[in-house]
């Protein structure tokens, strides 16, 4: 993948995140930051995917990065974290796997269908695990920061 392709993917992930944010009726002041976090998450996912870490780990780390940047963005803008992390994960949604599962179910190839269904489930689990780890990390950090201040 060359530089042109990377920039191109970044622009598209930014656009996708911002437009998904619009369909969720996000406050206008948060739109731009949302797009940047979405592009960052996709960049992390794509680079990990290209060095063959496996699709689940790539999703987990990308979700972790999105979660941590959402915590920072929420602190900066003094807005709920949900505004930033939900739109940013839209490029990571396992749409391809879910589609293939349905495709093979419709054509009575249950073995392949179940394989893709499990894969979609594992990706969804990895994303929520990443968010969970991000939140845990943020809480631990703020606890430590508060206790050293006192």
């Amino acid at each position: 993948m060359d530089l042109k392709m990377i920039i191109f993917q970044l622009i598209f992930s930014y656009l996708a995140t911002v437009s998904f944010a619009v369909t969720l009726n996000i406050p206008r002041s948060a739109l731009n930051l949302c797009g940047l976090i979405g592009a960052l998450g996709w960049l992390v996912y794509k680079s990990l995917y290209l060095v063959h870490t496996g699709i689940v780990l790539a999703n987990l780390v990308a979700a972790l990065v999105i979660g941590l940047s959402s915590v920072i963005a929420a602190r900066l803008k003094k807005k709920p974290m949900i505004l930033f992390n939900v739109p940013s994960l839209v490029p990571l949604v396992p749409g391809g796997q879910a589609y293939r599962a349905i495709y093979y179910f419709a054509f009575k190839n249950d073995n392949l269908a179940l394989r893709y269904l499990v894969e979609a489930g594992m990706i969804a689990g990895a994303i929520s695990m990443g968010f969970f780890l991000a939140e845990l990390g943020a809480q631990m950090y703020f606890k430590l920061a508060n206790s050293t201040k006192k």
């Binding site: 598209f12 437009s19 839209v90 490029p91």
Partner: peptide
């Protein structure tokens, strides 16, 4: 019309990204 336009952009950008 903004919602519909945004939904269109979500679909077509993700189609290329995948």
């Amino acid at each position: 019309y903004w919602l519909v336009l945004a939904a269109g952009i979500v679909g077509c950008t993700l189609e290329i990204m995948y």
